[in-house]
Write a protein that binds this DNA or RNA. Structure first.
Length: 413
DNA sequence: TCTGGGGTCCTAGGACCC
DNA sequence: TCTGGGGTCCTAGGACCC
């Protein structure tokens, strides 16, 4: 029994995307619903209603497979803006219980409720009130897991679904976890599961038969963490961190899968331009500058490569990102090979260091102002109102450093 | 099964430096 | 010529999560 025990809530929204869609279209309620795209499209299921799950449909499954398993399902396109909006409402409700809230993704959060008994009463009472308040204020169901670690809270919220509350009493962590499949441990996916099964480890309790040192030898750092997790500890890494210490993103990326594979250079480079703009925009929103620019390229046969380049000084400019990514593309694309996906990824964020070159700095600043103005126009008039790729779409023209004019401010604004 | 898009973290090898 | 050891940065790939 630990001397000092945290009380962590893991709050997980039930079938979040589906539930939000139901609020916008009550007709969907009680039916088999698949969110993520249309039945014939290239893509996967983002979320499935409990009705659809009965037919074996689950997230990450190809849409076409879902359509075969459950032909009567209603297929709905995803609406990220709606989900963000509702995610903020969820955050608002959670924040009214404790300031120590950390959104772990768009539809789940950790709360550190340690020592709040005097304010909220016994933990289960608090959980039930949170449960009710969430429903009353967002019209959405959630499940709540309570434990002495993030890990135990997370696993117990999964076991509480749907619309339940589950508290693992401090001291009972190992007993709670022992009968569960290793796959129930967050971080254990297909590959790790197979590797563990090969050792005869199928249930979490099976870990107890092995020395920690053996697991470390076999799986490295991950083996050490696994041994701790099997006992319910937040062993290492992010799980160990304090709840609510909010973190800046470490990378930003956008990618696009074509509905039909293409080897048309004009189309491909125009996509890279558009993706570069999207990434640049996000960088400016965050006030971040990136040093490493990465291209992702997936061929028809699904083979995928990434190629990166690190700049001497960081950037948030669409044009600089595009220039790099285009060079990487031209140097690595197997000529005429059909491409399925392109992606632009930036990382290595830094503060913008003062440059030696004042002229270059001035030019860069002008660009930044112009781009921010364009960002604001897009906010007002929609994504298509302004595009630096305007000239690219038809049959791409070269743009040089000497000719930066005429980019922002084109379009129908 | 014909496989999205946005992230995080880890590993491993090579370059380079002391 | 027969050759260490560590640290850091960079790149590529992969597992995993929602």
């Amino acid at each position: 029994m630990p001397v000092f025990s945290r009380t962590i809530f893991h709050v997980d929204m039930d079938a979040f995307f589906v539930s939000v869609e139901e609020l916008f279209d009550p007709e969907l309620k009680g039916k088999a619903v698949v969110v993520g795209g249309q039945r014939h499209e290239r893509g996967v299921v983002s979320a499935a209603s409990y009705e659809a799950r009965k037919f074996g449909v689950h997230s990450a499954m190809p849409l076409r497979t879902a359509a075969k398993l459950c032909p009567q399902a209603i297929f709905v396109d995803g609406h990220p803006d709606r989900y963000r909006q509702y995610s903020e409402r969820v955050y608002g409700v959670l924040g009214s219980f404790t300031p120590l809230v950390e959104m772990a993704s768009i539809d789940e959060a950790y709360l550190d409720m340690t020592g709040t008994e005097r304010l909220h009463g016994p933990v289960l009472d608090a959980a039930h009130r949170l449960h009710q308040k969430m429903k009353a204020e967002t019209q959405l169901n959630c499940s709540i897991g309570i434990g002495s670690s993030r890990l135990v809270a997370k696993v117990s919220s999964a076991k509480a679904k749907p619309h339940g509350v589950l508290w693992v009493i401090p001291g009972c962590e190992a007993k709670f976890l022992a009968p569960l499949d290793v796959r129930d441990i967050p971080g254990v996916g297909k590959v790790t599961e197979k590797n563990l099964n090969d050792l005869g480890i199928r249930k979490v309790g099976d870990f107890a038969r092995f020395e920690t040192s053996f697991l470390e030898e076999r799986f490295g750092k991950w083996g050490l963490a696994l041994a701790g997790k099997s006992r319910g500890e937040d062993a290492g890494g992010w799980f160990d961190s304090e709840v609510g210490a909010d973190v800046d993103p470490k990378s930003i990326s956008h990618e696009h899968t074509y509905n039909e594979d293409t080897s048309d250079p004009a189309q491909l480079e125009s996509t890279l331009m558009r993706l570069s703009e999207m990434v640049g925009r996000r960088l400016r929103e965050h006030g971040s500058y990136a040093r490493t620019i990465q291209l992702k390229l997936r061929y028809k046969d699904f083979s995928t490569i990434t190629r990166a380049h690190t700049l001497a000084s960081p950037t948030q400019l669409d044009t600089e990102i595009f220039e790099q990514v285009r060079a990487l593309f031209r140097n690595n694309w197997k000529k005429n090979a059909e491409i399925r996906l392109l992606g632009v990824h930036v990382s290595g964020f830094e503060e913008m260091a003062g440059q030696g070159d004042l002229l270059e700095d001035g030019r860069r600043q002008k660009w930044q102002q112009a781009l921010s103005a364009a960002d604001r126009l897009r906010d007002k008039f929609g994504e298509t109102s302004v595009s630096l790729a305007g000239g690219m779409r038809g049959g791409f023209r070269e743009r040089t450093h000497e000719n930066p004019a005429g980019l922002p401010g084109k379009g129908k604004s």
